[in-house]
Design a protein around this nucleic acid. Structure first.
Lengths: 345, 345
DNA sequence: TTGTATGCGTTATCAA
DNA sequence: TTGATAACGCATACAA
C-alpha cells in the first residue's frame, strides 16, 4: 500500500479507502488506484485488516468427520454461501472426540474467527468449551447435532418428522412388527428419530416393545449385531427402521447372511441418504437431510449474528423438512412408486 | 498480556517471553506467568503474532472435492501431522474448476498461510496462479494430482505400479482381452495408470488395441457408457481395468444390466479403494492409495520447506507404493487368496 | 475529497 | 535476566 501511495503521490489513507470502495473517494482516483494495484499485484493482508478491525473474515466449522456424503455436502453449502459473503472457512474435525473438539475450539478462537458453526461429537456431553465461546460474545450456531433443549442458535432437520414418515411408510407396506436401531439418546437427532418411530406406532395403534428398540453407536457392526439378535429370537421383527444408513447397511448384510430376504422377510429403512444407499442390492430406503440447505441456512444465521454485533438475539432454531426416499429395501406387497417425495405432513 | 504484566508488575516483554518459553526467563517467573495466564484464560492472538513475525501457523489445502474416501483420508493425515507441529489448516475445495482454484489460491494468500498443499482440479491446464505462489517464495507442495513433468515438490502414488499390479492380476486370472477406462491424460495420475496398463500388456506379449482404451472423465455414467459400447461390440473384452472406482462401478452396473456376469463374463478392477467397493455385490477389486501416509508425507515435506525459509531446495518427489486389494469382481478360475498385499515390484 | 496520527496485539532490537 | 520502544499492514477519528 505504501508503494502505491508513493507512486500516485497520495497518502495511504486514500489508497486504503479507494481499495475498500469508500464513498469519499472520487471515481477517477478509485480506478487509478485499482489499476495500479492490479499492476503491482497487490494482495491485501487480511491478518492486518482483521487485527485492526477486531474482526476477521474467517468462519470456523467443527464437524465430527468429513467422510461420507452428509457433512461434505453441508460444508459445501456453507462454503458457497460464505464465499459469496466474502468469508473464508476453516474446517476442523473432532473425530467424534470431545477432547479434540475442545482443541478445535481453542484453535478457532486463536485464529480469531468471526463465528463458529459446530455439529457436536457423539461423545460431547459437557459444553463448557462452547459456553466459553458464547461468553466471549462470539456468534455460535449449531447444525444437525445440537445441544438438547438449550437456548442456542441451531439449524436442524425435523428428525422426528423424518422418522415418522419412514415408519409410516413401513406400516403402509404391511409391516406390523417394526424394530428400531436407535442412536445415543443424548444427541437430540437420535432422540427425535426415536420419538418419530414411537409416534408412528402409536398412530397405528401398535404397542412399543422394548426388545424391539436397540441402542447402538450407529456403526455398521453394531447394526449387524442387533439384527442378528433380533432374527435369532423367537419372534423376529418384519421391519427395521434405523436412525442411520451405516447401521441399516450392517443390519441388511447380516439379515442376508442369515438367509433372510430383504425386503420380503424383513424390510429395512435408514436415515441420511448416504451415497452408498443407491449402490447396494437392494437399494436402501432412507431419509434425505437437505444437506446443502442446511449449510446455507447455517451460514445465513451466523452472518446475521455477526452483523448484529453484540445486540443479543433471541435464540433461533431453524427446522428443515426431511424427504423420504423410498427404495427397494422397504418395498412390500403394496404397490408404490419407487421414489415418493413427501413435502408436508 | 497487558493485564498479566500489570498484575505481576513486570513488562509485557517478559510476559511474551515467558509464554513463548524464551531461554532468558527464569523458571519461577515462567511458571508464575503460565499460572496467571491459565487463570485469566489468556488466548494468544495468532493474527497479531503472525503479523509481527511475518509468518502464520496456518497451512492451506486445496482439494478438488471432499466427498468419497480418498481426500477426507488424506486431509485427515494432513490435519493430524499439522496439528502435532502446531499448525492449523484451511481446507478449500476447487470443485474441479480452475477458476475456483485460482480464487482459492487468492484466499489462502490473503489469509497469509505459511504454505500451500494442492491437489489439482481436473480442468487445470494452466499454472500461472500456482507459479505466482512459488514466485512469492511461499512453499508449495502437490499431492496426488501434480503437475506433469515439472520441477515441483510433490507427494504422489506410484500410479503406474498400481496399474501394473492390477492389470497383471487380471492377466493372472486368465483374462486375455483387457480394456482400460482411462482418465484425462493431462493429469499425471491418469497418464501413469494408463502406462502401467500398457506395460502389463507388453510384458504378457499382448497387443495394445486402441478400441480397448476409452478416455472418460472417470464418472459413473461414463463408465457405464463405455462398458455398453464394448459389450455390444462384436469382440467384447473379458476384463476391464478402470483408473477410478466410480467409473468401474458404472461399468459393472451396466454389464449386469446387459446380462453379463461379473467376474465370470467380464472381470473388473478399479482404483482408489473407495468405501463403496466393499459394499457392492460383487465387491470390487481396487488399488489402495495410502491416503494417510500421503497426507503425512505432504505435511512433512511442506514443513521442511517452511523451516528452510528462502533457501531454495531441490524439487523433491516422494513416491508411495500402492497396494492391490483383490476382491470378488476380478476373481477368475485361478485360485488366489481374497486379499493379497503386494509390497514390491 | 484528502491527509495526519494513532492503535490493533504481538515480538524483535537494543540498551540496561 | 529484564524493559522501553518500534514495527508488522491496515483502518479510522479527526483535522484540513
Amino acid at each position: 500500500m505504501a508503494d502505491l501511495a508513493r507512486e500516485l503521490g497520495v497518502s495511504m489513507t486514500t489508497i486504503s479507502r479507494a481499495l475498500s470502495d469508500h464513498y469519499s473517494i472520487g471515481p477517477e482516483m478509485k480506478s487509478k488506484v485499482l489499476k495500479l494495484a492490479k499492476k503491482y499485484n497487490y494482495q491485501p493482508n487480511r491478518l492486518a485488516s482483521a487485527l485492526r478491525k477486531g474482526k476477521s473474515k474467517l468462519l470456523g466449522i467443527i464437524v465430527p468427520y468429513i467422510e461420507g456424503r452428509f457433512f461434505p455436502s453441508v460444508v459445501h453449502g456453507i462454503e458457497t454461501a460464505a464465499r459469496k459473503a466474502g468469508y473464508n472457512v476453516i474446517i476442523c474435525q473432532s473425530h467424534e472426540d470431545v477432547a479434540q473438539e475442545r482443541q478445535n475450539v481453542e484453535a478457532l478462537l486463536s485464529a480469531q474467527v468471526a463465528g463458529i458453526m459446530v455439529s457436536l461429537a457423539r461423545t460431547t456431553t459437557q459444553f463448557t468449551h462452547l459456553e466459553k465461546v458464547q461468553n466471549r460474545g462470539l456468534p455460535l450456531v449449531f447444525f444437525d447435532r445440537s445441544m438438547e433443549g438449550e437456548d442456542v442458535h441451531a439449524v436442524v432437520l425435523d428428525d422426528q418428522e423424518g422418522a415418522l414418515l419412514s415408519t409410516r411408510h413401513l406400516l403402509a407396506q404391511g409391516c406390523r412388527r417394526i424394530a428400531h436401531l436407535a442412536g445415543p439418546q443424548h444427541l437430540s437427532i437420535y432422540k427425535n428419530r426415536c420419538r418419530g418411530y414411537v409416534e408412528a406406532l402409536r398412530e397405528a395403534g401398535l404397542p412399543v416393545e422394548e426388545e424391539l428398540i436397540t441402542y447402538t453407536d450407529m456403526t455398521q457392526p453394531e447394526g449387524a449385531a442387533a439384527m442378528n439378535a433380533w432374527l435369532t429370537s423367537p419372534n423376529p421383527p418384519d421391519a427395521v427402521f434405523s436412525a442411520g444408513d451405516y447401521c441399516a447397511l450392517g443390519a441388511m448384510q447380516e439379515a442376508e447372511r442369515l438367509g433372510f430376504r430383504v425386503p420380503d422377510d424383513v424390510a429395512i429403512s435408514g436415515f441420511s441418504n448416504e451415497a452408498f444407499t443407491t449402490i447396494t442390492k437392494p437399494t436402501i430406503t432412507t431419509v434425505d437431510q437437505r444437506c446443502e440447505e442446511m449449510g446455507q441456512a447455517t451460514v445465513r444465521l451466523l452472518l446475521e449474528l455477526i452483523e448484529a454485533e453484540g445486540s443479543t438475539f433471541a435464540a433461533r432454531q431453524i427446522v428443515l423438512r426431511p424427504e423420504l426416499l423410498v427404495r427397494e429395501s422397504s418395498l412390500g406387497q403394496v404397490a408404490e412408486p419407487v421414489t415418493t417425495r413427501t413435502k408436508k405432513r
